[in-house]
């Protein structure tokens, strides 16, 4: 089975978010980057599938060379090889078009993306990629098993889960549940050493439109200081929720 895992290179969850150039660009100064958490669940699932069924796991990233440490980390966790499309990933359709070109060229059986990246939270690329390739798409995917050319999947729906089947190849937008947090693998020294010699192919971008652009960023307004209420005075909290916050 040939599996492609699409990964984003995102600021660490604890990173302070600042903007620069008159609030037109994200300020990466002093920010440490990681594999997008949603993608890491997908990468681990891909490794499980490979261990069970055999095959290869390729990771693909659309972005500049500064993302290569993140790609190497995915290789150290266990991916076999990697592709980087050398382009700025500023628009969902543009990124999906790059990935579609890679999938068309290499014919993967399963394409795993995270349901969204934790930086721009667009949640666009997986579905767009499936649509560009006319492949089945399962979003908010929390379960995947493969038998031959058939897959059984689970996705989240309002207040529950739905179980569904689809034929390979397919694209999914995954999240925690594909594997559990405790299944995630931390690269060991051997993995890190091996990752250095694994193939990381750099490809030029293919022509594709960019439909959207950011005109301006802004930081959310800071919250007013918390009002503390004594534990033996919950009536005061109820009163404030009614008269001040007006939420009950």
């Amino acid at each position: 089975m040939k599996i492609l895992v699409c990964i984003s290179h995102v600021p660490d969850t604890t990173a302070k978010i600042n903007f620069k150039d008159n609030n037109t660009a994200f300020d990466t100064d002093g920010v440490s980057f990681v594999i997008n958490p949603y993608d890491e669940f997908g990468l681990t699932k891909a490794l499980f599938l490979k261990e069970k069924h055999g095959g290869t796991v390729t990771v693909c990233h659309v972005g500049p060379a500064s993302a290569e440490p993140t790609i190497r980390k995915a290789l150290a966790i266990g991916a076999d090889d990697a592709i980087r499309v050398d382009a700025e990933p500023t628009d969902g359709f543009f990124v999906a078009s790059q990935l579609a070109a890679i999938v068309k060229e290499n014919q993967y059986d399963v394409v795993i993306c995270g349901q969204e990246s934790i930086d721009y939270n667009g949640g666009q690329v997986p579905g767009m990629l499936a649509a560009l390739l006319d492949l089945p798409f399962v979003n908010a995917c929390v379960g995947l098993e493969v038998e031959g050319t058939n897959a059984t999947l689970e996705r989240e729906i309002d207040g529950g889960k739905e179980k569904l089947t689809a034929s390979l190849p397919l694209v999914l937008g995954g999240k925690k549940g594909l594997v559990e947090e405790s299944d995630l693998r931390i690269p060991n020294m051997r993995g890190i050493m091996m990752a250095r010699s694994k193939k990381l192919e750099v490809k030029p971008a293919t022509d594709a439109a960019k439909h959207t652009a950011v005109a301006q960023f802004e930081k959310p307004q800071p919250k007013a200081p918390v009002k503390m209420i004594a534990a033996d005075n919950v009536e005061e909290l109820v009163n404030l929720l009614h008269t001040e916050a007006k939420v009950i």
Binding site: F93, V125, G127, A131, V138, T212
Partner: peptide, 20 residues
């Protein structure tokens, strides 16, 4: 959940911009 599944597919099929 369903809206997030449909919107990107529609965006490609309709050639429309998507802002989520």
């Amino acid at each position: 959940f369903n809206g997030k599944t449909v919107a990107p597919i529609l965006s490609v099929k309709a050639g429309a911009a998507l802002i989520t």
